[in-house]
Design a protein around this nucleic acid. Structure first.
Length: 435
RNA sequence: GGAGGCGUGGCUGAGUGGUCUAAAGCAGCACACUGCUAAUGUGUUGACUCCGAAAGGGGUCCGAAGGUUCGAAUCCUUCCGCCUCCGCCA
């Protein structure tokens, strides 16, 4: 949610900034409702002050009771009015996405995202590379047919070494992100100003209450369709560890010396993929359920940009270790996630498709989430200030596994294991085709 | 799932309808005193919001939401969380 004061004082600027995102927002309604809210609040406070004054000091005369009854009625109707106005205001405020940073390219959709860099040479194969789907068949790693029988479309069984590769990726990531020296190395290499500090490993809940989900900005207009919901228990399934990790410090005042407060969270992610019918229907690229390692940070406002750049640098460093070619995209205003002020995506090379495909994303949500979460810290002046939240994929295991398959296949239909992962896979170096 | 108990400020904890404007203690901060530390004394202490240039003033907050009452931390209803016992269970 945006700051109401910002809209009040800078309504034109806010409107312009959000139009860049292709969102039409009703700034006028906010101004009118905000005005009314403040007027009613004033009247209500005055009436309550009178009530407080007059109800002190024991039993009242019948005549005075009559007057106080009228006052009570007045307070009640003012309270009702205020409640209505606040609710209307909230509804409009929820239809405002975050304001993009100045440097974010203005654009309509993903076609206008900007390529920031390409890294790693695309592998030259002296044979026609198989798609990961066909390779998965040969290795007997992926069974989507039986998954469809048991669970429906867009699910899969991972078999044989594929689960080992999943756990290897988890160990690989945790070993690096919990190591201060690794963080320091990445900061130095990229000349970043972010603080040297390790990540705290976390396995968060995968179900979330509506109130927490709303605070994270994940139930705002247009997003509800994408969420799995369990009506019997009034709970949603998370679409990312970001959701329950960010909500973890809801209503808290974080000790400023602990900032930036970094987590590396592992969880399964659930996505309905509503509205993507026909997209990536084959294989496991777009599924309802996948496991993911997610970085999340609570930071001071002045350090959130550095934190965001660190997240990107960490993503890149780990990709370079795995030697998967990728490119970095700066996401344009029209394609950004609702809660973001700035977003980078990292796309991995898929040789069989002769294309880069999205495997990572990292976002600076500034104070958009923390405002509703009420996650704050005390700044040096002793004032309360909202933290900034930054999230980023460490590895979306499903997708990165596919990228590994595509890039590490051999002519004979076997699969090599990236060197850096072998030690977490009991030394397995290569997997022969089974079919 | 069944039975019972409990939820008060940073923490401990008193408070069962009207000076609660929430006692007291601890911790924190400031000052004083004191070779230093400790101890002691005095004062002070939150969040949110509205009005205001500021100084300042008003309102809200005793798990949450409703209700009763002229008046609610206190009474009623629902919900949430925690604890104990029973049942079930990886």
């Amino acid at each position: 949610m945006l700051d109401i004061k910002l809209i009040r004082q800078n309504s034109e600027k806010v409107k312009e900034a959000l139009e860049k995102r292709g969102v039409r927002v009703d700034v006028e309604s906010v101004l009118v409702l905000d005005d009314r809210r403040r007027k009613v609040t004033g009247e209500l406070d005055e009436a309550r002050a009178e009530q407080n004054r007059r109800s002190k000091g024991g039993p009242k005369e019948p005549g005075e009771i009559e007057e106080l009854k009228k006052l009570k009625e007045k307070i009640k109707s003012l309270e009702e009015e205020l409640g209505t106005v606040e609710k209307e205001l909230e509804t409009v405020m929820y239809s405002f996405p975050n304001i993009p940073f100045e440097e974010v390219p203005v654009g309509k959709d993903e076609k206008e995202n900007k390529v920031l860099k390409e890294q790693g040479s695309k592998l030259k194969f002296d044979f026609d590379p198989l798609s990961y789907v066909d390779l998965g068949e040969k290795l007997d790693w992926i069974d989507t047919e039986r998954a469809a029988k048991v669970s429906g479309a867009r699910f899969g069984y991972l078999k044989h070494e594929a689960p080992l590769l999943e756990f290897a990726l988890i160990s690989f990531t945790l070993e690096r992100l919990t190591n201060k020296k690794f963080i320091e190395k990445v900061i130095k290499k990229n000349k970043l100003s972010a603080k040297v500090k390790e990540f705290i490993p976390l396995v968060p809940p995968v179900m979330i209450k509506p109130e927490a989900f709303r605070a994270m900005g994940k139930l705002d207009p247009g997003q509800e369709e994408e969420r799995y919901y369990l009506p019997k228990d009034d709970l949603y399934l998370i679409g990312s560890a970001e959701h329950t990790t960010g909500a973890m410090h809801m209503g808290e005042i974080l000790p400023s010396e602990n900032l930036p407060h970094r987590h590396i969270a592992f969880s399964t992610a659930f996505r309905r993929e509503a509205g993507s019918y026909g997209k990536d229907t084959r294989g496991l690229f777009r599924v309802h359920q996948f496991d993911k390692l997610e970085m999340f940070s609570f930071a001071k406002p002045e350090e959130s940009r550095a934190e965001h750049d660190l997240f990107l640098a960490l993503q890149e460093e780990m990709m370079q270790e795995l030697k998967i070619p990728y490119r970095v995209m700066l996401i344009c205003t029209g394609d950004m996630v609702w809660t973001d002020a700035k977003q980078y995506d990292l796309e991995s090379w898929f040789p069989s498709q002769n294309a880069y495909r999205e495997t990572h994303s990292t976002s600076n949500s500034t104070d958009f989430q923390s405002r509703r979460l009420k996650a704050r810290f005390k700044n040096e002046k002793g004032e309360m200030e909202l933290v900034h939240t930054i999230n980023g994929t460490a590895f979306a295991i499903g997708r990165i596994m596919l990228a590994i398959m595509e890039n590490y296949q051999t002519k004979s239909g076997s699969l090599k294991i990236p060197k850096q992962l072998q030690k977490y896979m009991f030394g397995i170096k290569e997997i022969k085709a089974r079919k």
